[in-house]
Design a protein around this nucleic acid. Structure first.
Lengths: 232, 232
DNA sequence: ACAATAGTGTCTTTCAGACACTATGTG
DNA sequence: CACATAGTGTCTGAAAGACACTATTGT
């Protein structure tokens, strides 16, 4: 027997972020159905009780069905609920944050989405603007003490690229030396390409990216690492 | 018109933590209904769409109805969902963490609950054991870089009491001087009792707690402050 | 006076950050 | 060789931690 209270609707929303031209952008699409038909909204959908194993599974399925792509990083943000967020009545939305490198987006022909600078948000439907704001805050905060920004870059990247992201996010510059020692970079001792120490934050490859000057070593992120001390 | 998918049940669970005899304890009660009748469980309940304004409001109402008390601190933890966590089928639980000083508990005649050491958990119903584990992890982690532990103490407390909690949680000792300078304590400059600087982490009162020795000044927490550097 | 705990000052060590120097590619 | 960027070493100043010294109560 079911309980006697009215059950609210449960949906999953996804704040899909990427780095385009040095700016954080969020994926939005125009709603095809009412309510809010024609307005900009986050991708989202309802739980399919016959195929989803968890809230995160629902989020992955929604993205896969809409665009065919799998984000490099996904985590729950917060669950929003209340009587006013959807005109149809009391509703629940389990919000997620997802990160993806910009390169993977253009390939996957994800023309479904339009990308907007998170610091110049247009009008959004329901409480989606608030969800984006919280997501960006979470990402910026977590970036200050973890390797989270790596998931916004291609799988292989140079230290200068990575440093650029951190400086982008925090609006401050740091000397190369300081930056590298923070990440525990000591290339001289590593055997590049070798499976590095589990404790290492980044893994050095034996590939290089050259321009008109000395080529830079390419790195790969080992895992989501938390720094003991916040960056800035 | 409603969507066509089956809507899962939505409930709110609360991991209510307190500090008893220097140990973190969680509030559990025995279920009076099936499924899991007679087993230990977290307090929780369904959203009342006619009276709750948010998920947090539901959590506060559930606690108030069950025990009459209002926690000093409450935040969302994570939303658990899946086909197997409840034998009745796909279900969603929005888990919360709540903190309350032990003193307020005994007063409020909250005989509803039994308290268990979080490091010696008994068998729990559904996925509640996992919820407790995640909650404790969140609290311990947040304690390492914030004033969160203050909400486990009475409103007025001495610095030695506070230091004791931090040492309890991390299992390491710290010299008084280091601890006080971390909190930015400089009593000499404060006008005790005065509304202190907004930036101050703790507020000095002009009250003291005496034993058989020099009395210790009582402090009150200003707000939830985050330290730039983690404690341990 | 003495015991016990509160509160403060100082010294040492460690580490973050600035900066300069070396290395290695291109034209 | 000039130039540009990658990568490393060194020096300095600030802050964390250890420890000892002073302060204030009760007995």
């Amino acid at each position: 027997m079911k309980h006697s209270h009215t059950t609210p609707d449960v949906s999953v929303d996804i704040v899909l972020l990427t780095l385009d031209d040095g700016r954080l952008k969020v994926a939005l699409h125009r709603r095809e159905r009412s309510p809010g038909k024609g307005s900009l909204a986050l991708p989202g959908g309802y739980v399919h009780v016959d195929e989803d194993a968890s809230m995160e599974a629902t989020a992955y399925r929604v993205l896969r069905d809409k665009t065919g792509l799998v984000p490099r990083y996904l985590e729950q943000l917060r669950t929003f609920g209340g009587p006013d967020r959807d005109p149809r009545g009391w509703s629940v939305a389990v919000a997620h944050v997802a990160l993806i490198p910009h390169a993977e987006l253009s390939e996957a022909g994800a023309g479904v989405f339009h990308f907007y600078d998170v610091d110049e948000l247009p009008e959004l439907v329901f409480d989606h603007a608030g969800q984006v704001q919280e997501a960006v805050q979470r990402v910026r905060n977590k970036a200050s003490y973890s390797t989270l920004p790596c998931w916004l870059l291609p799988e292989l990247f140079t230290l200068t690229q990575l440093q650029g992201i951190y400086e982008q996010i925090f609006g401050e510059t740091v000397s190369r030396g300081t930056f590298r020692s923070r990440l525990g970079i000591k290339v001289g001792e590593l055997t590049p390409g070798e499976a590095a120490d589990e404790a290492d934050i980044l893994i050095a490859t034996d590939q290089f990216q050259g321009g008109n000057q000395r080529p830079a070593r390419l790195f790969r992120v080992n895992r989501l690492s938390l720094f003991k001390r916040a960056f800035w």
